[in-house]
Amino acid sequence: MTDADAALGEAGTLALFDFGGHALRDDPRCLPVALESLDAPVPLEIWQVDAPVTCGVAGELRWSAGGGWLFAAIELDERDHGGPQATATRAYEQLRAFVGQRAERHVLRIWNYMAAINQGDGDAERYKQFCIGRAAGMGDFFAEGFPAATAIGHHGDVPRLQVYLLASDQSGVRVENPRQVSAWRYPRQYGSTPPSFARAMSLPALDALAISGTAAVVGHASAHHDDLDAQLEETLVNLEALLASADMSAGFDTQSPLKAYVRHSADAARVRDFLQQRLPGVPVLLLHGDICRGELLVEIDGWRYA
Results as ranks from 00 to 15, higher is better:
residue 131 C to R: 14
residue 183 A to L: 10
residue 179 R to L: 08
residue 241 A to D: 07
residue 266 A to T: 10
residue 26 D to Y: 12
residue 243 L to S: 01
residue 171 S to T: 09
residue 50 D to N: 15
residue 38 L to W: 00
residue 136 A to W: 11
residue 146 F to P: 10
residue 80 D to V: 10
residue 19 F to Y: 07
residue 4 A to M: 01
residue 304 R to S: 04
residue 91 A to I: 05
residue 153 G to H: 02
residue 31 L to I: 14
residue 138 M to F: 15
residue 301 D to M: 11
residue 205 A to F: 12
residue 204 P to D: 13
residue 118 N to F: 03
residue 50 D to Q: 13
residue 262 V to P: 06
residue 301 D to S: 14
residue 149 A to I: 04
residue 60 E to D: 15
residue 65 A to V: 03
residue 189 Q to R: 14
residue 139 G to R: 03
residue 26 D to F: 14
residue 134 R to K: 15
residue 300 I to N: 00
residue 56 G to K: 12
residue 123 D to N: 13
residue 134 R to I: 03
residue 122 G to Q: 02
residue 61 L to T: 09
residue 56 G to R: 04
residue 124 A to C: 08
residue 12 G to S: 00
residue 57 V to F: 15
residue 297 L to A: 05
residue 127 Y to T: 14
residue 98 F to D: 06
residue 56 G to H: 00
residue 167 A to N: 05
residue 264 H to F: 14
residue 211 I to D: 03
residue 215 A to Y: 11
residue 295 E to N: 09
residue 29 R to F: 09
residue 10 E to H: 11
residue 298 V to D: 09
residue 150 T to Y: 08
residue 283 P to R: 09
residue 78 E to S: 08
residue 304 R to K: 12
residue 249 S to D: 09
residue 288 H to F: 00
residue 15 A to Y: 12
residue 12 G to V: 04
residue 292 C to I: 09
residue 141 F to E: 02
residue 218 V to Y: 10
residue 168 S to E: 12
residue 25 R to W: 07
residue 163 V to S: 08
residue 13 T to W: 03
residue 227 D to Q: 07
